[in-house]
Amino acid sequence: GTEDLKEEAKKALKKGDKERAKRALKKAGLSEDQIKKFIKEVL
């Protein structure tokens, strides 16, 4: 589900894998702006 994808994105970001995080967030249905915001909040 969406929460799982967001968790996956957080883990990817902590490993420095932004591309993987972006893919997971796109799958979760987030827009580009939401993805940028999510990444900023996590990092």
Rank of each mutant, 00 (worst) to 15 (best):
K6A: 06
I35W: 03
L43P: 03
R23E: 14
K14V: 10
I39L: 07
I35F: 02
G16L: 04
A21S: 02
A28Y: 06
K36M: 13
K37Y: 08
G29P: 00
K40E: 15
K36A: 14
A24F: 15
R23W: 09
A9H: 01
S31K: 05
K14F: 13
R20G: 15
G1H: 12
E41T: 09
E32K: 07
A9Y: 03
D33V: 08
E41F: 09
E19R: 08
L13E: 00
T2V: 14
A21W: 04
K40V: 10
F38M: 03
L25F: 02
D33H: 07
L13H: 01
R20M: 12
D33K: 10
A24L: 15
A9D: 01
D17L: 07
A28W: 04
K36T: 12
R20I: 07
K22L: 15
K40A: 15
E7M: 09
E19M: 09
E41I: 08
V42I: 11
K37P: 01
K18Q: 13
A24P: 00
G16W: 05
E8A: 08
F38E: 01
K37L: 12
L13D: 00
K10L: 12
K22W: 15
E41N: 09
R23I: 14
E32P: 11
G1I: 13
K40I: 13
Q34N: 05
E32H: 07
E3V: 10
K6W: 15
I35S: 02
K10E: 06
D4W: 15
E3D: 12
K6H: 09
F38L: 04
K18W: 15
E8R: 06
Q34S: 05
V42R: 04
A12D: 04
I39A: 02
S31M: 04
K10A: 08
L13T: 02
L5N: 04
E8S: 06
A21L: 04
E32R: 08
K15H: 12
G29M: 03
K14E: 12
L5C: 06
D33T: 09
K11G: 06
V42E: 07
A12G: 02
V42K: 04
Q34A: 10
E3S: 09
I39N: 01
G16I: 02
D17F: 08
K11F: 06
G16T: 02
K26E: 13
K11W: 09
V42P: 02
A12I: 04
L25C: 01
K15I: 14
R23G: 06
K15Q: 14
L13K: 01
E3C: 07
